[in-house]
């Protein structure tokens, strides 16, 4: 392998890992909801799109930095998630019907409405937040003069990645150390047992849906400085989130992180070596391979090695 090829490979891996960190954040939100509520939230990407429009609106109106809008968009998404859960999803959980997949179809409906309303209000133009640090990057040659290869590290990508890591750690503390966090995990493990132990399961569901929405909302704010925004972007990210949860193992936070990183690196590799257009196909090839070969997800492999919890 020549040094130019090595350079391309390493650069691809770096950008893949940075992308994977953000994907992990999206995946964690979905996996939390899936673990506690046992439903797949197919409006997940659309919720992210809503958060991105909030960040975009704050940027254009008040010149608020997209990274700061995390503090506004994430709580806003929490409220939106709570409302959706209280007034739309909860009633359907109680309704009896032939098809148990009604809840999933319901979230599709919610996603459709959100995406379409975004088109109506913001038109389907591509938007972005032109921050002045968008093209800033660190180069390996700046630190190591005689470096045989040249690698770069984009400034906004790195910041997004670091914030994603910080949010993940904060979430881990919340789930592991606080009462509410423990109740959420208990509900995910066994709904009825949690109920018997005095956990307010109904409230935990509402909080979890809000929390999952807030996480994907935060991910949206981290994505917007490095990505562009249009109303139909949600569907793509819903699928990404779903692929991550399958890849990582359903309902597992650790799995979502690992799955996100794997997917990020894999997508980055397909984009470099097979062409940009094929990246979504690579995503689904990995998805179907995961379904066939590791149906329990990466976390089941870790468990077998006694690494996972």
């Amino acid at each position: 392998m020549s040094s130019a090829q090595l350079e391309v490979l390493l650069q691809t891996l770096i950008s893949g890992l940075l992308l994977g960190g953000l994907y992990a954040l999206i995946g964690i939100g979905m996996t939390l909801i899936m673990g506690v509520m046992k439903i797949i939230n197919l409006a997940h990407g659309e919720l992210m799109m809503v958060a991105m429009y909030i960040a975009y609106g704050l940027f254009t109106l008040f010149h608020l930095d997209p990274y700061l809008s995390v503090f506004i968009a994430a709580p806003a998404l929490f409220v939106l998630g709570v409302l959706l859960q209280r007034f739309l999803i909860n009633p359907v959980l109680k309704v009896d019907s032939i098809l148990p997949e009604n809840q999933v179809i319901l979230t599709v409906g919610i996603g459709m409405v959100l995406a379409n309303l975004a088109t109506v209000f913001f038109t389907s133009d591509y938007r972005s937040t032109p921050v002045d640090y968008a093209t800033k990057a660190w180069y390996l040659s700046d630190f190591w003069k005689g470096s045989p290869i040249e690698l770069s590290l984009s400034f906004p990508w790195s910041i997004s990645f670091l914030i994603a890591v910080a949010i993940t750690i904060a979430l881990w503390f919340f789930l592991a150390k606080t009462d509410t966090g423990k109740s959420i995990r208990a509900t995910a493990q066994d709904n009825d047992a949690a109920l018997l132990m005095g956990v307010n399961v109904g409230r935990m569901r509402v909080i979890t849906f809000g929390l999952g929405s807030a996480l994907v909302g935060a991910a949206g704010c981290l994505f917007i400085p490095i990505y562009y925004l249009y109303p139909d972007l949600g569907g793509q990210f819903t699928l990404i989130a779903f692929v991550i949860t399958i890849l990582g193992g359903l309902g597992s936070t650790v799995g979502a992180i690992v799955g996100g990183l794997i997917l990020g690196v894999f997508e980055s590799l397909t984009a470099t070596y097979a062409g940009m257009g094929w990246a979504p196909v690579g995503r689904f090839v990995i998805f179907i391979a995961a379904l066939i070969f590791i149906p329990g997800g990466v976390v089941s492999l870790l468990r077998r090695q006694k690494w996972g919890r």
């Binding site: 739309l88 179809i105 319901l106 599709v108 409906g109 919610i110 996603g111 459709m112 409405v113 995406a115 379409n116 309303l117 088109t119 109506v120």
Partner: peptide, 11 residues
């Protein structure tokens, strides 16, 4: 806005 109507109808 026809998707909005479809979505609301579905819900």
């Amino acid at each position: 806005a026809h998707h909005t109507f479809f979505g609301i109808l579905l819900i």
